[in-house]
């Protein structure tokens, strides 16, 4: 079997004296959809942030079997990794198309200076058509020229995914893609994840258990910054530690 696309070993993140993550191992193989679940504060998004260079961390990172430094945020796309953000993270004053084009910046071959001098009309066209292709994947070409702040929330989630896909990533990090969506949109997201998993591998943080159980090949469960279980959805669903972590946290909330 070939080396996993992404392999994280002994990941630790500390905020002051608090360990947000400790000794976490994660693997993601080609065309796999892997879920990352756990109660609030378990460290799921922190793991994404560590992988995107937003927080400093310790541990080893391997990409396609090769050891790699933890990337800086702006290196991520060049490494073939894209992510969406919990809060959608779009630019509200820009159009849908512009938002997606930003994700395609890595294909701007002419460089920024040429672009400033207006020498790069061809690149502009290429970026535009890549962005339109990505919008087509999420069925949003019709609203390409609308401003994002005029759109309903579920639509903005699709656009955020289009922006992540436009760079043609090998690894897609989805942070709560179903969060805040109604049943119909969740249905769409489910089948959409199935479709794009043919093109790239997906690491997914999600609270909606239905989504996680139906789309994921494997699941990792985090609690208080530590891995408490991993395996197939079936295996994880019946794991007593997982059940306790979830019951414990929801009991604690009430």
């Amino acid at each position: 079997m070939s080396a996993p696309l992404l392999s994280i070993n002994g990941l630790g993140v500390h905020f002051g004296g608090l360990a947000a993550l400790s000794d976490v191992d994660i693997e993601l193989n080609k065309n796999e959809v892997v879920g990352l679940i756990g109660p609030n504060g378990a460290g799921k998004t922190t793991l994404f942030n560590a992988l995107s260079g937003l927080v400093s961390c310790e541990g080893n990172l391997e990409l396609e079997g090769k050891s790699h430094e933890w990337p800086q945020p702006n290196e991520l796309v060049d490494l073939g990794i894209s992510r969406t953000l919990q809060g959608v993270g779009l630019f509200p004053d820009m159009t849908v198309l512009e938002n997606v084009m930003i994700g395609a910046t890595k294909f701007a071959t002419g460089g920024l200076i040429r672009s400033a001098l207006g020498l790069d009309i061809r690149t502009e066209k290429v970026l535009r058509s890549l962005a339109m292709d990505a919008l087509a994947k999420v069925s949003c070409t019709g609203i390409a020229d609308r401003k994002v702040d005029s759109l309903p929330y579920p639509t903005t989630k699709r656009i955020a995914i289009a922006r992540a896909l436009v760079s043609d990533p090998k690894i897609l990090l989805l942070d709560e893609p179903a969060g805040g969506l109604g049943a119909e949109d969740i249905e769409w997201m489910n089948s959409f994840i199935d479709v794009i998993s043919n093109r790239c591998s997906i690491l997914l943080v999600e609270h909606h258990m239905d989504v996680v159980m139906s789309v994921c090949d494997r699941i990792y469960v985090l609690n208080f910054g530590k891995l408490i279980a991993s395996g197939t959805p079936e295996h994880v669903r019946n794991n007593p530690d997982v059940i306790e972590a979830y019951l414990g946290s929801s009991a604690g909330k009430q």
């Binding site: 937003l54 702006n74 991520l76 630019f91 820009m94 930003i102 910046t105 920024l112």
Partner: peptide
């Protein structure tokens, strides 16, 4: 586009490359 993105939300712009 990059100038505007970087001015709006630099972290998100960085993540987008």
């Amino acid at each position: 586009l990059s100038l505007r993105a970087a001015a709006f939300q630099p972290e998100i712009a960085r993540l987008a490359g």
